[in-house]
Deep mutational scan, measured.
Amino acid sequence: WIARINAAVRAYGLNYSTFINGLKKAGIELDRKILADMAVRDPQAFEQVVNKVKEALQV
């Protein structure tokens, strides 16, 4: 799951650890299995999560 998430978030200019930190700051409580599945099956929803994380990180 970690490898999938890392590959997906790198397309948005983040790395895995920064993304996970941003999830916590944004108050998003999705587990890694769901995030990895979302990255593959629903990229639009995953992009929305990434955008919320970037807002929380102020990137």
Rank of each mutant, 00 (worst) to 15 (best):
I20A: 11
N51H: 12
D42E: 09
A45N: 12
Q44Y: 07
R10L: 10
D37F: 08
K33N: 12
P43E: 07
F19V: 02
D37E: 12
I20D: 13
N6P: 01
I2K: 09
F19D: 00
I28E: 05
T18Q: 13
K33H: 13
V53S: 10
I20V: 10
I5H: 00
D37Y: 14
L57M: 11
Y16T: 04
K52Y: 07
L35W: 03
E55G: 10
I28A: 06
K52F: 08
E29T: 14
A36S: 08
A36P: 05
V40L: 11
A11V: 10
Y12W: 06
T18P: 02
R41M: 14
N21L: 08
D42V: 05
G13S: 05
K24F: 13
K33V: 09
K54S: 07
F46K: 00
I28N: 04
E47F: 08
A7N: 12
N15D: 10
E55C: 04
A8T: 03
E55Q: 11
A26V: 11
V49W: 02
K25M: 10
L35H: 02
L35E: 00
R32Y: 08
S17R: 15
A8Y: 07
E47V: 06
A36N: 02
N21P: 05
A39H: 05
D42Y: 07
T18V: 14
S17I: 13
L23R: 00
D42F: 07
V59K: 05
A7P: 01
N15I: 12
Q48D: 12
L35G: 01
V49G: 01
V59S: 15
P43Q: 04
D37T: 08
R10M: 13
A39V: 09
D37C: 03
Q48I: 13
A11P: 15
E55L: 10
A8E: 06
K33M: 15
A7Q: 15
G22Q: 03
V53Q: 00
M38F: 06
V9H: 00
R10G: 14
K54W: 06
M38Y: 06
A7D: 15
Q44P: 12
A26K: 03
N15W: 05
Q58I: 14
N15Q: 08
P43H: 06
K24Y: 14
I34D: 13
K54F: 10
V50E: 01
A8L: 11
V53R: 00
A26P: 01
N21D: 11
N6Q: 13
A3W: 05
V40F: 14
G13R: 04
R32W: 13
K54H: 07
N15G: 08
D42A: 07
Y12P: 00
A8K: 05
S17L: 13
W1N: 15
I34C: 05
Q58D: 12
K33F: 11
V49T: 04
I5S: 00
I34A: 08
D37R: 07
G22L: 03
D42H: 08
L30Q: 12
V50H: 01
Q58A: 11
L57V: 10
A3E: 15
N21V: 12
N6C: 07
G13W: 02
D42R: 10
A39Q: 03
Y16K: 01
D42T: 07
R4L: 15
M38V: 06
A39F: 08
I34W: 13
K33W: 15
G27E: 06
L35R: 01
V9A: 09
I5L: 07
F46N: 00
V9P: 00
N51V: 13
Q44A: 10
N6H: 05
V49Q: 03
L14P: 00
Q58P: 12
F19Q: 00
T18F: 04
I5P: 00
V59Q: 11
W1F: 15
D42W: 07
K24G: 13
N51A: 08
I20Q: 07
A3P: 08
I5Y: 02
W1Q: 14
N51T: 11
S17M: 10
R10E: 15
V50I: 10
G13C: 04
A3I: 07
L57G: 05
W1Y: 15
A39N: 03
A8S: 05
A45V: 08
F46A: 00
Q48L: 12
R4P: 04
A39E: 03
V9I: 12
V50Y: 02
Q48A: 09
E29N: 15
I5V: 06
K24C: 03
W1V: 15
M38S: 02
A7W: 07
L57N: 07
K25G: 10
Y16S: 05
N15R: 06
S17W: 14
D37K: 08
V40H: 15
S17T: 09
G22T: 04
R4S: 14
I34Q: 08
I20Y: 08
A3D: 11
R41D: 14
D37P: 03
D31L: 03
V49F: 06
V59F: 14
Y12G: 01
E29H: 13
W1P: 09
I34K: 09
L23D: 00
R4N: 12
V40D: 15
D31W: 03
Y12F: 14
Y16H: 04
V40R: 06
N15P: 06
K25C: 04
Q58N: 12
R10A: 15
N6W: 05
V53Y: 01
N21Y: 08
F46H: 00
R10V: 14
E29M: 14
E55H: 08
L30F: 12
S17F: 09
R32A: 14
I2L: 09
F46T: 00
L57Y: 08
A56K: 08
V53M: 03
S17Y: 11
I2P: 07
A7S: 07
I2W: 08
L14F: 08
V50D: 00
W1D: 15
L30T: 15
F46G: 00
L23G: 02
D42L: 06
D42K: 10
I20M: 14
N6V: 05
V53G: 01
R10P: 01
V50N: 00
K24A: 10
I28D: 02
D42M: 07
A7E: 15
S17P: 12
I28C: 04
Y12N: 04
R4G: 06
K25H: 12
K25Y: 06
G22K: 01
F19N: 00
V59P: 15
E29L: 10
A11M: 12
A36D: 04
K54M: 11
I20N: 08
Y16P: 04
I34Y: 15
A36G: 09
P43Y: 05
